[in-house]
């Protein structure tokens, strides 16, 4: 297990233990399990991932974390990505808003890894959801790369801030037994694309009961649309279950 993975997993385990030990009857936990299937121009092969995430909501606050695994039989890396996020709900006049901060880690290869972080504000009404914020990407060399390729400097590169956005429309309110939505965004759970590479997402869900919900997502990725030279980049299909534990 490499050093980067341990750095990320230790706080995640600590947070999970804290949540389990301090679970309040007024809090809510939302574990989520899902599987990804997709392909893109740089993936070389089909992508088959399994993801697990959970969020813990107490009052107006929420914290969450997740991990993504490559479950293809011949995959070189089992652990792929992780994220952690915090948010707080608030109101300005009649508008329901939430402030969010997040961190992502992409254990891309034994040479290069990526760290993303950002902040955004969300505005939700019954059918429309808008997220707007800023993010930064840091690409970094691993200690293996530095040693193996005798690199003496320039171990990482931090990019300028980019715009984070999500514009989403859903046909039913959140509480409905089923729903269907369409969104344009540059943020997925474990992936941030540059602002100029929007992704199209179609989402649906169905509630089996108050505690359990099935969901599915289809993502279309394109490149070059903001350059007026669009090209297909890839797709991703995702399906999974979300549990709602607590009030």
């Amino acid at each position: 297990m490499n050093k980067h993975l341990l750095i990320i997993l230790k706080p995640l385990i600590a947070i999970t233990l804290f949540l389990v030990c301090n679970f309040s009857s007024h809090a809510q936990i939302n574990p989520k399990l899902f599987i990804d299937f997709g392909k893109h121009n740089a993936s070389n092969d089909y992508i088959v991932n399994a993801g697990v995430s959970t969020s813990y909501k107490f009052g107006k606050n929420k914290i969450g974390a997740g991990v993504l695994f490559d479950i293809k039989p011949n995959s070189e890396k089992f652990f792929k990505n992780t994220f952690a996020e915090i948010s707080r709900d608030f109101k300005i006049k009649k508008y329901k808003l939430n402030a969010n901060a997040f961190f992502m880690y992409n254990d891309f290869s034994n040479l290069v890894v990526e760290y993303d972080w950002g902040v955004f504000v969300g505005l939700n009404n019954e059918k429309f959801k808008f997220n707007l914020g800023l993010f930064s990407k840091i690409f970094s060399l691993t200690s293996y790369a530095i040693t193996e390729y005798m690199i003496s400097d320039n171990y990482c590169f931090a990019e300028n801030f980019g715009l984070l956005y999500c514009i989403s429309y859903q046909i039913k309110p959140d509480e409905n037994i089923y729903n269907l939505s369409i969104a344009i965004t540059n943020k997925d759970y474990f992936l941030l694309t540059r602002s100029t590479n929007p992704m199209l997402k179609i989402y649906t869900n169905y509630r089996f009961s108050e505690d359990l919900m099935w969901f599915a997502e289809a993502w279309l990725k394109t490149s070059g649309s903001f350059n007026l030279s669009i090209n297909y980049f890839g797709f991703l299909a995702r399906t999974g279950l979300i549990w709602q534990i607590g009030k």
Binding site: N41, E114, E159, G162, L191, R194, F226
Partner: peptide, 16 residues
């Protein structure tokens, strides 16, 4: 992304 302008850079997956 060297500066704040809305020109397209490659997809992150490809850049990596």
């Amino acid at each position: 992304r060297a500066r704040h302008i809305p020109t397209t850079e490659p997809m992150t997956e490809e850049l990596l």
